[in-house]
Design a protein around this nucleic acid. Structure first.
Lengths: 177, 177
DNA sequence: ATCAAACTGTTAGACGCTTTACATTTGCCT
DNA sequence: AGGCAAATGTAAAGCGTCTAACAGTTTGAT
């Protein structure tokens, strides 16, 4: 740690001015090193996903949910068979440990339940509670409507093409490993 | 907290078996609620970005870097003017608080330095150290080569089209707010 | 010249994610 | 039947991100 960090703020408890957080006030030169269009594509994909996630987070917060919590509720709503935590982790492409922590929070809120499974003492079946079902039924239409508004300039065909391209990207990226 | 959580593991210190982490052993039904192609597109974008990030993290870890740390070094390498932490936060589209924590770690590793600015006691100019410059110069070619290998089935024109589409998505998503 | 608003960087707390390591349970294979 | 590997869920530590709140500095309007 440098001494810079040691500087402490102890006075000025009153807060009379406004802190608007990050804002754009000055243009940065977005100079590119060389015309590396593939690097640019990668940046664009990540940037778009980030923006989508942040917009989603704002929406979900209106219902006191995080994005991860919404994803779990949404997945549970449309499952047709009994799912374990491990199943959930594969479906959402996160580790089992992540599922444990998200489920802990959802269980505390009374939105999901872990049910012991008679034949197997290792696993739990995860399911929505009545309250969880009600909540996701409330959030889902808002979520879908927002997505449609955001993407209404895209035709179904354009969406499909874009999806196809992204699948190609994933497939190739997988091979490189 | 439920009693489930209270269960403690205290014995069996020996670890003779292998824990390979999450693996795919059983197919999950990926049933979709209705044919919501736009929702599918959103999932695809986020999923692709996640995969890219995880692949990148693997690569960067070979150089003892996280993705966020790489992003900072990479941005600093190609800046043409002096950048403050705030500039960096805008460039990387994260909050100033995030930049503070990443820079703390990079500074501890001796890869970047914060320089006081004579005319303005509020800001620091952030720059690569000699060591930081050397490191990013080592990592960058590997990074670029990986991206090119992963995307070599895309023509420049296809990349451009895809970028354009993604920019459209971001623009529209911004409007919805 | 003053003063309020804006800007910059930091801190604290929360969250999600990962990795690593573990206890327990199950299942397969000889 | 026994034993070893795999599978499941949990815990802890580390990282990056966010929001909120703050101290200090600068700026701009009056």
């Amino acid at each position: 740690m440098t001494d810079r960090v040691m500087k402490k703020h102890v006075r000025n408890q009153g807060r009379l001015h406004c802190d608007m957080g990050v804002s754009i006030n000055r243009e940065l030169e977005l100079e590119q090193p060389l015309e590396d269009i593939r690097h640019e594509l990668v940046l664009n994909i990540v940037r778009t996903a980030t923006q989508i996630s942040q917009k989603g987070a704002l929406l979900f917060r209106r219902f006191d949910l995080t994005e991860a919590q919404f994803n779990v509720l949404f997945a549970l709503k449309y499952k047709t068979s009994a799912w374990t935590q491990s199943d959930l982790s594969k479906r959402l492409v996160v580790t089992r440990a992540s599922i444990t922590s998200v489920l802990d929070k959802l269980e505390d809120k009374g939105l999901v339940m872990r049910e012991k499974v008679p034949g197997n003492r290792r696993i739990y079946h995860v399911a929505l509670t009545r309250q969880g079902k009600n909540l996701i039924d409330t959030v889902e239409p808002v979520y879908r409507e927002t997505i449609h508004k955001a993407l209404d300039s895209f035709s179904d065909r354009q969406c499909l093409e874009l999806i196809h391209r992204l699948e190609q990207v994933r497939a190739r990226a997988d091979e490189v490993a």
